[in-house]
Simulated assay, not measured.
Amino acid sequence: MSVVFITEQLLNGLGYGLMLFLIAAGLTLVFGIMDVMNLAHGSLFMGGAYIAAQVQVHTGSFALACLMAVILMAIIAVLVEQVLIRRLYKADHLVQVLATFGLILVADDLVKMIWGTSPMMANLPESLSGPVQLLPELYYPSYRLLIIGAGLVVALGLYLLVSHTRVGMLVRAGTSNRWMAELMGVRVARVFTNVFVLGAMLAALAGALMGPLVAVQIGMGEEILIPALVVIVIGGIGSVRGAFIASLMVGVVDIVARAFLPLLLELAIPGPLAADLGATFSALSMYVLMAAVLLFKPSGLFSERST
């Protein structure tokens, strides 16, 4: 194992973790503030990927594709929140899970009607299709650097929004004590709508950015939802700071485990068995991380009051 290979995998883990943060941040805000378990959050990620891929095919502009994905998913999120999610605020979590799971099925069928069942593949922007030399022997894909940069910028912007603006103050007030916030004149319904739309926009952006790297297909939202849920459990439900740190931890651990565990097992177990065991143990790595964190911090790294 060379230093170049190790550095590449760490950068891959950083990029994957930041994409997880875009999804988990909206999910943890929705759950922490609105107390709504939205299993359909991954469908917003899928919708952003499909819309961006379609717009890019027709216009050839990746920037416009990302912008349209975020705008259209924000509009859809407003409709979904007002028609369905608003009716679930006072329901128990089982009802919320069943309702939003039904929304997943509706979203998947709508995608089948519009785009069919065949996967789509978004193209890399020509200006970002080549590598960038970071070290004398390290060439890293420029598009993956864009993902890392975009994730860091969004994380910083979300931190400033939540911690240093009036909007963030209202969000934190709703997280801490919803009933008291209503008594103080906060329009909680509007805050809830804004939070849900913000989460949808972040998920759509993540989908648009991941489109050129993965197959855009039905079910991709459910696949990304599982690690996103692991992130919010590790970070602490309702905590953006916890979601950021946990996303980086999960991203790096998952990618590093997939890259190095099979190689390490081959030293002790010859043949294809090492590859099979490596793949199995790698898939379990983020759950082992979650169990280890919860063993010492049962409520996650940060409570929801430390948003």
Rank of each mutant, 00 (worst) to 15 (best):
M1F: 12
V4R: 12
F5G: 13
I6H: 11
E8F: 11
E8D: 12
E8S: 14
E8P: 07
G13I: 05
Y16E: 09
Y16D: 07
G17R: 02
F21M: 05
A25Y: 04
G26N: 01
V30C: 03
G32H: 01
D35N: 15
D35P: 08
M37F: 15
N38K: 09
M46T: 05
M46C: 04
G47H: 08
G47P: 08
Y50A: 07
Y50L: 09
Y50R: 05
V57K: 14
T59E: 03
G60Y: 04
G60R: 02
F62I: 06
A65Q: 05
A65V: 05
L67A: 08
L67T: 13
V70D: 04
L72F: 14
V78I: 07
L88Y: 03
K90M: 13
K90C: 08
H93L: 12
L94K: 08
V97Q: 09
V97G: 04
A99V: 10
F101S: 10
G102Q: 03
L105D: 06
L105M: 14
V106P: 01
V106R: 06
A107T: 10
A107K: 09
D109P: 08
K112Y: 09
M113L: 15
W115C: 04
T117W: 09
M120N: 10
M120C: 09
P125D: 11
P125F: 12
E126A: 11
S129V: 10
S129K: 15
V132Y: 04
Q133I: 11
L134N: 04
P141A: 02
L145Q: 04
I147S: 02
L156M: 10
V162Y: 02
V162D: 01
S163Y: 13
T165R: 07
G168P: 10
M169Q: 13
M169R: 14
L170T: 10
L170R: 13
G174Q: 03
T175V: 12
R178E: 12
R178S: 14
M180W: 09
L183R: 10
L183Q: 14
M184T: 15
V191Q: 07
F192P: 07
L198Y: 00
A200Y: 01
A200E: 02
M201I: 08
L202M: 14
A208D: 01
P212G: 00
V214C: 08
V216K: 03
I218H: 02
G219L: 07
E223S: 13
L225C: 07
A228F: 10
V231L: 00
V231Q: 00
V233L: 08
I234V: 13
I237Y: 11
S239P: 01
S239G: 05
V240T: 04
R241W: 15
G242C: 05
L248E: 00
M249I: 08
M249F: 06
V252R: 01
D254I: 09
V256K: 11
A259V: 04
A259W: 06
L264W: 11
A268N: 11
A268F: 12
A268T: 12
P270S: 15
G271D: 02
P272R: 11
A279F: 14
S282P: 08
S282R: 03
L284W: 09
S285P: 00
M286E: 12
Y287C: 09
L289D: 03
V293Q: 03
L295T: 12
G300I: 07
S303P: 06
S303G: 15
